[in-house]
């Protein structure tokens, strides 16, 4: 019963926070709400015994990515943004895409097409600790996808530098 109540609190708060984030006119306020949202996501991970994931959620998303967002937003002219209308002219096109992707998500959820359940049980994770369990899986079983992902990130970094540099000496 307690589990359901806690999950219910997290689910309701997260969805309402997400709605608040996208409906604020002032982007700075959106960011503050998004910060609270990230903490709720981390809290949900903690209830799943995934403490490493929770810490990484805060460090990477709240600590790095959101600060970068803030950095970019501070360079924009917010006072002018505030006076503009809330919707761009192209909003019907966006709405079509949103409805289509919502349909897709609903179909996939009700189609029960989840990925295979892994063979690591919660009792195993509790025995060695979540960090060790994640590390073993990433670097032993899924080493190749992990390296591919890091290579893709490297490509993105190199691309960003090439784009940012006006002329390469």
């Amino acid at each position: 019963m307690l589990n359901q109540i806690i999950f219910g609190y997290f689910a309701v708060t997260m969805i309402s926070l997400a709605l608040i984030v996208i409906t604020r006119k002032n982007i700075m306020h959106s960011i503050v709400y998004m910060l609270i949202l990230f903490f709720h996501i981390a809290g949900l991970y903690l209830f799943l015994n995934a403490e490493f994931l929770a810490a990484i959620q805060i460090i990477v998303y709240a600590g790095a990515i959101m600060v970068l967002f803030l950095f970019v937003i501070m360079l924009l002219n917010l006072r002018e943004e505030l006076r503009k209308s809330r919707f761009a002219i192209t909003w019907p096109i966006g709405a079509i895409f949103v409805v289509l992707s919502a349909v897709m998500i609903i179909i996939s959820v009700f189609g029960n097409r989840f990925a295979n359940v892994g063979n690591v049980k919660i009792s195993d994770i509790e025995k060695v600790g979540h960090t060790v369990a994640v590390g073993k899986l990433l670097f032993v079983e899924y080493l190749f996808p992990f390296e591919v992902a890091s290579l893709i990130l490297l490509v993105a970094i190199v691309g960003a530098i090439v784009l940012a540099k006006k002329e390469i000496k």
Partner: peptide, 9 residues
């Protein structure tokens, strides 16, 4: 580390 990065906010 998480908390010290939060201090930046």
């Amino acid at each position: 580390l998480a908390m010290s990065s939060l201090g930046a906010y």
